[in-house]
Design a protein around this nucleic acid. Sequence first.
DNA 1: AATATTTGCGCAAACGTTTGAGCGTCTTTT
DNA 2: AAAAGACGCTCAAACGTTTGCGCAAATATT
Lengths: 344, 344
Amino acid sequence: MSSKPTTITEIASILNISASTVSRALHDHPSIGLTTRSKVKKLAKELNYEPNQTAIFFQKGKTYTIGVILPELSESFFSTAVSAIEDTAYKKNYTVLLAQSHDSELTEKQLVEKMKNHRVDGLLVSVAKNTSTFDHFRSLEKYNIPIVFFDRVPEIPDIHYVGCNMETGTIEAVNYLLKKGHRAIGMINGPKTLLASGQRREGYIKAMIGNRLKFDPSLVVSCDLTEDGTKEALNELLASKRKPTAIVTFNDYVSLFAIKYARSLNISINTDLAFVSYANLPLINYMDHTPVASVEQFPYLQGQKATDILLDLLNQKNLKTQEHAAYYRIIIESQLIENKKGFL
Amino acid sequence: MSSKPTTITEIASILNISASTVSRALHDHPSIGLTTRSKVKKLAKELNYEPNQTAIFFQKGKTYTIGVILPELSESFFSTAVSAIEDTAYKKNYTVLLAQSHDSELTEKQLVEKMKNHRVDGLLVSVAKNTSTFDHFRSLEKYNIPIVFFDRVPEIPDIHYVGCNMETGTIEAVNYLLKKGHRAIGMINGPKTLLASGQRREGYIKAMIGNRLKFDPSLVVSCDLTEDGTKEALNELLASKRKPTAIVTFNDYVSLFAIKYARSLNISINTDLAFVSYANLPLINYMDHTPVASVEQFPYLQGQKATDILLDLLNQKNLKTQEHAAYYRIIIESQLIENKKGFL
DNA sequence: AATATTTGCGCAAACGTTTGAGCGTCTTTT
DNA sequence: AAAAGACGCTCAAACGTTTGCGCAAATATT
């Protein structure tokens, strides 16, 4: 019934050769003759030999596991990012250990500890929205566990990351709205701890100034990304002197919260008040009242790049290249996508 | 810089005792005296000792990894199920190896092979929608790797599974519509390979007959769950002699596709044509035109139960209980949830 | 024909932990 | 006081693989 898997040693004893020869033969080591090599491979195939990964992991002192810590798996952005991470890692025989911080700084810290204990080879992190200290990540580097941040990148120096530059997309977004005739353009931004919030703000300012318009700080408010927070933010904007006719929101969820609330105030979406957002979630395809445009952040690409970088770092470590040249800072340019829905 | 982690042997040599004593002390083995035990634990804490998992995995001949194969991670149902699996597994020191079949039978087979090679201890599977043969799963059992199916459960005997009984929810759904006065109730069902499709059909029939209504087979059509397939199915229903005033759809996506298409035909949703669906996706909260009710399938609970069962099976295996009593068949009753939206 | 080089393989150690068996030493029982 | 038992610890093997080193035989170089 439960036939034990074949081992290298068994193959060796059957062929009356040493285990090391078998190992080398299977790895096409040049010092093994063609005849024995083919004999070994033939028998291995016959016996359905599969290398014992746990033994290899142990022997190599590596787990071939990369940890992934992100806020919320059920968010479409992250699940497609994970999908990319998974695909990329699998191709190089790496396994993905997944964990969600649920956007809590405390949980995030605990997870970092757990990952360390699990001896992951490296870590991919998208930080919780309110994480304010970053010592827990620094400590991992002491253990020689490289970290690559993606998407939610903290504003600290000397880290590897791949992020999406929100500035370009934001400039495009504001320009788009200006072209449509809007002048009072509001922004519901995210928490100030996030790099992306700063970029959005910068993009907003640059676009305004680039069009010889003055920047009105009261039109940019931040929120905590919750439904209630969005309501407050929208109230604030609607109460401002120059009532905006268009609003750029931090992401699609905020946008949908805002749209929902605005409709409850009998504001007609995209005629009285137009929305532009970020993320371009698939659920937008099902909606009736949606942002007129959305800034795509390329989650699959981000996940892929981040994993590539991490695997590269792990190889560097292998090669004992103590001085890795520099920090990877991959920036993907965001891109405004106009929302072309059917007639809905 | 890269301080190597402490090992049991190091602790042993510092205290001038044997490694086995240290190991036993840390595990509170009764044969170790109180004094040495506390000495060991104290030093272990000081040196920040963390057991080398790879060594333990290797030694125990287990990977402490459970594989998860599911169709699509980005579907909200599965991502919350994975969330549950992850949580449950982590508590027992298990790691989750994730893979997506993208609803392809071929990919699924390849993944099963990969999982075997990775020596996962057990497998959690939700099958691809068109998987028709199941030998690839059977072969794993020969290797003593237990499988627990969840949600998308194949219709084959002698398997462990946790599923959601769609019959009850469907009966509730049809009763609900009947109560609202509908008489011509259509159903857009899923592929016939899925157990859940049969259950929905059964529930539909039982509800009709239970209300002394005759069952009209032309009102139940199946579709492949794609947008185009949904259109076809809806066309078919609309063309039938008794044009339905309400439709029960296989899941929320199908429902939304159908609603989208129906609106394009100028059919007024929930007045001309009411929809009831399954899954109760969060995105429903953002929609304007949604099903009036949805059958909840409890993804978190399913993931949790399935993991519990798998871990239990793994323990049985440990205890060399060759004859495991029987097959786990956990069935969670689905439940109709009325869609109480604000004024939207 | 003698020396140098290559080719093909085996030996043994190493990775860190767990665990059955063994063995002194101290305490208890008769 | 001798036998029996409990206690506390050590020894050594085992898990499967990789890899530096060494050694013989075959081949190539003078």
